[in-house]
């Protein structure tokens, strides 16, 4: 670090990579002063998981109000903001552009530095929004509707991808199985709840272990297997058993692969983040299996599992301190 290193005091963070419109103010890289999220999930639920109007248009309507509220909640003013961090990708381009353009304009108007954050890196470090946090390096598993990826997190600025899904994300599998069973949206919480009364051994659904790339994931075959098993059943569907058996298959694979990565790299801390990290069976099994082998497990609080801007602030703060400021012609990216 050079002597000129700029250390942001009040950092404004913005996230619009998928369905959420979110803004947060992070003080001194640690203290979360505000965290505002406007989600389209209630709207999706009403329409059975479908996006009735594109996220980006909704975000365009919401962004000014969300940022204003983040500033007010933090008891700050635009003029107090001395750095801006924004999600640059991956995500839906139309959605990313809303937050990205806004952040660019804000940084330019206030004459403060702007940094572009990778959405997945933000999930990986969301654990630092709470007291009990892991030590570097740690194994990071991001499980959500759009992603299932395993990393070594070396520090706030360097992460290494170990494996990722080859087809469907785990959260997507939850949503699609819920759809197959005629349950509501989002699928994760509903399947989790129904599983409690079900037998996880009732159906033997496949676990994709992928010997050639053992840290990759695949949930497409599992989804197809649930679909074909449901088609074969005549009469009343044993919904709870199907949910429990399906959930167990997902959890088995996530737990096995996270622990296997920890073993392979001799790393003792495992952090699970993303929307599916809210799943109570995953939390229980990961904690039990990992701790039995001497690994420590960490899960962000529920509000930081789903998409939020606070986590973007964590990475953004460290990037700005490291001088990673983006140029004015920078663009968003859909895939990393």
């Amino acid at each position: 670090m050079t002597e000129n290193t700029f250390v942001p005091k009040n950092l404004l963070a913005i996230e619009t990579s998928c369905d959420e419109t979110a803004a947060a103010v992070l003080r001194n890289g640690r203290d979360l002063m505000s965290n505002v999220i406007v989600s389209q999930v209630p709207i999706h639920r009403k329409y059975g998981g479908v996006v009735p109007e594109l996220a980006s248009r909704h975000q365009l309507e919401a962004i000014v109000e969300v940022v204003e509220k983040a500033l007010i909640d933090a008891d700050t003013d635009r003029s107090d903001i001395d750095a801006v961090a924004v999600t640059q990708g991956p995500g839906l381009v139309g959605s990313l552009i809303v937050g990205f353009s806004f952040a660019k304009a804000m940084a330019m108007a206030q004459k403060v530095p702007l940094t572009g954050v990778n959405h997945l890196h933000a999930h990986l470090t969301s654990i630092f929004l709470q007291e009990s946090s892991p030590s570097f390096p740690y194994i990071g598993l991001v499980v959500s509707g759009g992603h299932t990826s395993l990393y070594i997190v070396r520090d706030f600025l360097s992460v290494e991808l170990l494996g990722q899904t080859r087809d469907d994300a785990a959260g997507e599998a939850f949503d699609k199985v819920a759809k197959i069973l005629g349950l509501g949206y989002p699928g994760g919480p509903i399947i989790s709840r129904l599983s409690e009364g079900g037998d996880p051994m009732a159906f033997s659904y496949p676990r994709a272990r992928l010997p050639d790339t053992p840290l990759d994931f695949s949930f497409s075959g599992l989804k197809t297997s649930v679909f074909t098993s449901v088609k074969q059943i005549q009469g009343t569907l044993p919904v709870r058993d199907i949910c429990a058996s399906f959930q167990e298959a997902v959890v088995d694979v996530l737990v096995e692969k996270a622990i296997s990565a920890a073993k392979r790299y001799a790393i003792y801390d495992i952090v699970v983040s993303g929307g599916v990290a809210a799943n109570s069976r995953l939390r229980a099994r990961m904690t039990r299996d990992a701790e039995r082998l001497g690994y420590r497990t960490y899960f962000p609080r529920l509000e930081f599992c789903t998409d939020n801007a606070a986590m973007v602030g964590i990475v953004g703060y460290h990037q700005i301190r490291a001088g990673m400021v983006i140029k004015e012609d920078a663009d968003v990216y859909s895939k990393k």
């Binding site: 995500g91 839906l92 381009v93 080859r166 790339t213 497409s220």
Partner: peptide
């Protein structure tokens, strides 16, 4: 690289 190709159900559009 086929490992890049995953379901776009959530993110809707993927560029390769």
């Amino acid at each position: 690289d086929t490992r890049e190709i995953t379901s776009p159900s959530f993110t809707i559009i993927h560029e390769h």
